[in-house]
Simulated scan of single mutants.
Amino acid sequence: MKIKKQLIVFIWGLCPLILIAQDYQSGYVFEINSDNKPIPNVEIIALKSSIANSDDDGHFRLAFRNKKGGEPILIDQINKKGYELVNKEDVQNWVFSMKYPVKIIMCKEGLLAESKRKYYNIGSDYYKKRYEESIAAKKKQLQKNNITQQDYLKAIDDANQELKKSQENLNFYVDKFSRINKDELYGTDKLAIQLLEEGKIDEAIIVYEDSKILETFIEKLKQRDNASYNLRVMAPLLFNQVDLLIQKNDMYSHMKADSILHAIAKSDTLNTTYTNKYALFLMKEENYSESFLWYKTTLLSAKTEEQKKQILNDLNTLYSKIEDNGLIEKYKYQIDNLMK
């Protein structure tokens, strides 16, 4: 009887521990366009979770009870005096994952509005110039009697409607472009911003929309518990798309290939096939510094001596392409330390 009582007391003592068992979603808060500068003391309030605050490294944890992978995380507030949320759309699409951390991007108050004004002025100038050129061309046609007065007036009306529609679209895309974090610019995002700052707003919009389809797909895969399985199924198709893009041999296609390979490699940095393919691509693109970093990542994840030998051979090929002997020695020193 005494043993039974002791057992009951022991089990009862465990009950609070069982009741408070929690699942954690980790995350980080960074400042936009700052080389990933962490922001401390940000308050994150999620429904059915205790309030979390970011530490000096920008890290925070949201505690949930019985939260399953893939379930949505509903954020009520993200607060820090003097700052505003940048990646609002990403935060609204968070799903719970104990494997992958989430990310909050913030900026100082007023910076978003400033960026929007800048990009709006670029786009507005572009559309006004196109409008004026269109009207001038129709006026010349009218003066040469190539079109009637009625056709001319209709052309002006059409041009006005097109200008109005373009400016309405501009408001939408200006907000999107202002929220792009330049610390995370790869491939097509980088090209979109480059085109925008050159005043090529229509081309920037096309590139942006094209890239978001793939990035959204990859991000959704990363946030699910069966992400590894889905990527194994999809990776061959995506790699095939990369091969086709590279064959086109133009800047946009190569940047899109970069975006695909980077997204896949980043989704599972322990998969040496993914990281090695991206490292090799970067080497062929003559981006040697980034290529070295991804070969280094691949080497850290390599499990067999055969894999390590192949990576070291690839690194020797990389060294042969670098002209700076000091940089080669620096890279070799880092690899030697890894192999110890």
Rank of each mutant, 00 (worst) to 15 (best):
180 I>P: 05
185 L>K: 01
186 Y>H: 03
190 K>N: 01
191 L>H: 06
192 A>E: 03
194 Q>A: 07
194 Q>P: 00
196 L>H: 05
197 E>R: 14
197 E>S: 04
198 E>F: 00
199 G>I: 06
205 I>Y: 01
205 I>T: 15
206 I>L: 00
207 V>L: 03
208 Y>V: 10
209 E>A: 12
210 D>N: 13
211 S>T: 13
214 L>D: 05
214 L>A: 09
218 I>D: 03
218 I>C: 06
219 E>Q: 15
219 E>K: 12
220 K>Q: 12
220 K>W: 00
220 K>C: 00
220 K>N: 10
221 L>M: 08
222 K>S: 05
224 R>G: 09
228 S>T: 11
232 R>H: 12
233 V>A: 03
233 V>I: 12
234 M>W: 11
236 P>F: 02
237 L>Y: 13
237 L>M: 07
239 F>E: 02
239 F>L: 04
239 F>D: 07
240 N>H: 04
242 V>L: 00
243 D>L: 11
245 L>I: 08
246 I>E: 15
247 Q>G: 12
248 K>D: 05
250 D>G: 09
250 D>A: 07
253 S>F: 05
254 H>V: 01
256 K>F: 05
257 A>E: 12
258 D>K: 08
259 S>N: 12
260 I>Y: 14
262 H>G: 04
262 H>F: 15
264 I>H: 05
264 I>L: 11
266 K>N: 02
267 S>T: 02
271 N>A: 15
271 N>K: 14
271 N>Q: 14
272 T>M: 01
274 Y>L: 07
275 T>K: 10
277 K>T: 11
278 Y>F: 15
281 F>V: 03
284 K>A: 02
285 E>R: 15
286 E>L: 01
286 E>Y: 05
287 N>M: 11
287 N>L: 09
288 Y>E: 07
289 S>D: 09
292 F>C: 02
292 F>P: 00
293 L>A: 12
294 W>H: 12
294 W>F: 14
295 Y>N: 04
296 K>C: 05
296 K>W: 04
296 K>R: 14
297 T>A: 11
298 T>F: 10
299 L>N: 01
300 L>H: 06
300 L>R: 14
301 S>V: 07
301 S>K: 09
303 K>Y: 03
303 K>G: 05
304 T>F: 05
304 T>R: 07
305 E>L: 08
310 Q>G: 00
313 N>E: 13
314 D>M: 08
314 D>A: 15
315 L>D: 06
316 N>D: 13
317 T>R: 15
